[in-house]
Nucleic acid binder design. Sequence first.
DNA 1: TGACTCGGTTAATGATAGGTTAATGGCAGG
DNA 2: CCTGCCATTAACCTATCATTAACCGAGTCA
Lengths: 226, 226
Amino acid sequence: MKNKLILVEDDPDLGVVLKQYLEFSDFEVTWFTSPDALLNHPINYNEYNAAILDVMLPGMDGFQLSKELRKQTAIPFLFLTAKGQSIDRILGLKLGADDYITKPCEPEELILRIHNILKRQVVDTNNTMIRIGNYLFFPSRYLLQLEATAFQLTEKESDLLQLLAARNNDVISRKEILEQLWGEDDYFLGRSLDVFMSRLRKYLQHDNRIKLESVRGVGFRVVFPE
Amino acid sequence: MKNKLILVEDDPDLGVVLKQYLEFSDFEVTWFTSPDALLNHPINYNEYNAAILDVMLPGMDGFQLSKELRKQTAIPFLFLTAKGQSIDRILGLKLGADDYITKPCEPEELILRIHNILKRQVVDTNNTMIRIGNYLFFPSRYLLQLEATAFQLTEKESDLLQLLAARNNDVISRKEILEQLWGEDDYFLGRSLDVFMSRLRKYLQHDNRIKLESVRGVGFRVVFPE
DNA sequence: TGACTCGGTTAATGATAGGTTAATGGCAGG
DNA sequence: CCTGCCATTAACCTATCATTAACCGAGTCA
C-alpha cells in the first residue's frame, strides 16, 4: 500500500513540484495551500503516514500548525525551512520522529528524509500517542492527559492501559492480562490486577463513554470511544 | 591561545600537507587516519574548536562520523568532499555552523572556511542566552546568573541544563539524557545523573516556579516558567 | 434466604528508585 | 610532586510503588 502524505505549502509553484515529485516517488499526496485549508477539512489523520509542513505559511506558521495537529495525531512532521531561517525553534521542539529540511532542497534529499522518518516511526515505539476518548495517552512517558490536566501513571498502570487500549471493544480475560503483565505463572495473584483496574477507572472517570466493565468469571470488557 | 583542530583524513599525502599547512597558519592539529582511530582514542572534544572530516573514509563515512561526534560535542564540522560528490546530504544536515569544501582545494580557501566557522561559532555562542525564570543562562560560558549573583557551572552541569531547557514543559527520559550527555552506551551509570540534577535544583532553588520533578521509572519533568 | 464466590476498594507494608551529602580518584596546570 | 577542580562513586536516607490484607457488596445456586 502506498504511503500517504499531507503537504502544506502555500507557494503554488513549489507545491506543484513537490506534489509531482512525491507522487512520482510512489507516495500519495494530499496538498493543502494553507493551515486553515487543512484544519477546516474533515480528515482522518491516522490514514496518513507523515505531514510535510512549510514553516512560513499564511496565518499560522508551521510550528503552530504542528502543535494543532499534534492534538489529533501522532504522525511525524517534516518541516520545510528556508535557508538561513533560525533552526533554534525546531531544535527546541519536542521532536519525536520529526525532522526538518532546508529549501531549496534536492528532491532526493527530501525523499530520503521522508523514508527516514517513516522507518523511524515503525521502529520507534517511543513518542506514540493513543487517543482514549477525550484523553491522550503517551505510553512511553506513562502519561495520561485530559486537556489541561495530566496524570502521571506508574509503569504498571501504563502497561495495563496500553494492553487494554489494544483490545478496544473486546473482552479480555484475566488470564491473558496476567500472562502479559505478570509472566505466565498461572499462580493466583492476590487482588493486584483489581487494584490496578480500580485505579485506571478513577483516572478515566471524566469521560463517561469510557467503560472498563468486569465480566464475571472471565475478565473485562473494554469500551473506549473512537 | 591557539585554535585546536581535529583532522580525519585517510590519505597520508593529503593529511601531511593539510596538517602542515594548518599548523603553519597557527592552528594546533590532531590528525587521525580513520574514524576508528578517532573514536577509540580517549579525547576531550570540547578542547577543540572544530573538526575537519573527509567524506570518503574507510569503514564509516564522514557523515556517520559526524553523527557519532555530535553526541559528544557541539564543535562545528567542515567536510572535505571530492569534486562531483553529492553535496545533498550535507545541505540537509542539522548543522548550524557547519560547512563543506570540495577538494582539491586551495589552502587559503580552507583556512578561510575554518576561520569562518570559528567566527560563526563565537558569535553564536556569545549571543545565546536562555531565560529560565528570573535566571539568565549563558550556555557557552557555563554561566548562570540571578540578578547580582552568578553561578559558574561546570561543563556537564551546563550541558545538562541546556538539554533540559530545550525540553521545557516536557518529560525527558533518563535514557535520553544519558544518551545525549554520556554517549549512547547503555551501560549503567551510578547516581551521576541524580547528583547533577541535585546540583541544578540547588542552583535554581531561588525561583520556586522552576521545577525539576522526577518521574519514577521514566526520567524527569522539566517545568521552567516562560 | 443463607452460604459461598468473585470482584471493588481502601489502607497498610515491604521493596526499590531516586535524593543528597561526602568521599574518592583522575587529570590538568603549575 | 603538589594543588585544585570536577566527574563519579559510596553510603545513607526518603518517597513512591506493587503487592497484600482486610473488609465490603453483589451475583449465584441450593
